[in-house]
Design a protein around this nucleic acid. Sequence first.
DNA 1: ACCTGAACACCGTTCAAGT
DNA 2: ACCTGAACACCGTTCAAGT
Lengths: 253, 253
Amino acid sequence: MSSPSSPSRGRPARLDRTRTLQTALDLLNQSGLDALTMRRLADAMGVQAGALYRYFATKQELLTAMAERMMEGAAEAATGASAGYTWQQQLTALARAARNALLTHRDGARVFAGTHATGASVLGFADAFVGVLREAGFPDDDAARTLYSVINFTVGHTLEEQAALQLESGRTEGADTGGGRPEGADTGGGRPEGAVPEGAGALRDAVTTGTYPHLAATLPALTSTDFTALFEFGLDLIVEGLRARRARAAATG
Amino acid sequence: MSSPSSPSRGRPARLDRTRTLQTALDLLNQSGLDALTMRRLADAMGVQAGALYRYFATKQELLTAMAERMMEGAAEAATGASAGYTWQQQLTALARAARNALLTHRDGARVFAGTHATGASVLGFADAFVGVLREAGFPDDDAARTLYSVINFTVGHTLEEQAALQLESGRTEGADTGGGRPEGADTGGGRPEGAVPEGAGALRDAVTTGTYPHLAATLPALTSTDFTALFEFGLDLIVEGLRARRARAAATG
DNA sequence: ACCTGAACACCGTTCAAGT
DNA sequence: ACCTGAACACCGTTCAAGT
């Protein structure tokens, strides 16, 4: 029990797990995951990089703790006032809470996807989610698999959403010093001479350049930036799929 | 047109886009994404690291080309013989082909998720996918959104699947030299003294330690390693959701 | 034209030594 | 007990210089 967390005798200790975690989350929000290095985090805490390893054995362990904290309160936020909600409404609320938790932190989905947090926040959320389905009468297997379906969809979606956010902003660093870059390394697509597009514009360009009739016809929806509507659409598909499965089971059983 | 790809006069050139790409994919399969560095790739090609930058302006561009190549043939693999399939069957085949394409390469999902490939493989796949839905009579918006739902679910799922594979193997490097590691940095959970579990065992441990009634009741399904069944479950949910949406639209319209 | 050599500005992690 | 200093073994990327 004489871990670094417990305040023994001696100097008051500039570091501890909680303060390090909070500073890491702040740094993440300010600068993004790529800029969150152990050295920069140490700097922000006025300490040498090596000192962090007394509280987190590896960077991976720190990231896992961050993922865990991101999910804090997600289950509660979705539970709302109390009862009177259908299982569809409860499931939808939980999924939205998960997406919101990831969106609340810059690169939240990347942090979550890169870790395997199994703390109280994540498991509490999972237990609430599975509980809704079990109490609605779904078989245990279906309940567990639905949890993964919704989580995987949510993480995949938010990964995309946050990647798109990063591209549409943050195009203003290292603003091309004008140094003669070797002319090679082209994609070979015969681009109009300008810069290589990267965001939604890249998709629009590529679609209109090539011959993709169906993509061309759906370009507006394909390049839409209404990620909330996109998330709701997929979520609704899953929930409706569950309802259909339930109706079928009721008819058969 | 005098790009490095076109063989002009001079020495035969040990490098080119295609050979570099192939070697990178081989190295990925052998060693994983974390070991795929520009320096190691250069080593594998018998060249200095800087030489690679004549063919790929950045590592990100190389990774995008890799993602693009992973998806090569996915649309065709799903199209199968010819017609006679329902839109549900065609959609399911396309989604399976996407997962298989990612699974075929080590860390394939991580590579794909970290890039924004908009080449012929990816767009051909997307066009085929959207085409199935449009020809089945779905509105353009629904077709485009369904594409994203399925892709995001598939990427999220395969990310998890490949992460789980990595954990259950590969526990045999840097086999603890016995050096006195500082004793701190514990999670504070009072673990039984052994090593920190990381795979499916970590989840099982955490669930049985805490008080999560619903997770405890569904533990077998929760810790199952049948990822194909898990993928099929989620995919079926989405497809059934689409069918329900279609039936509703037909009744209303 | 294509590649080498060498540098620049970083990384995560370890660990003896100080206080 | 807690942190510093300094190192180890790496990174991605740039670019003058050689051939």
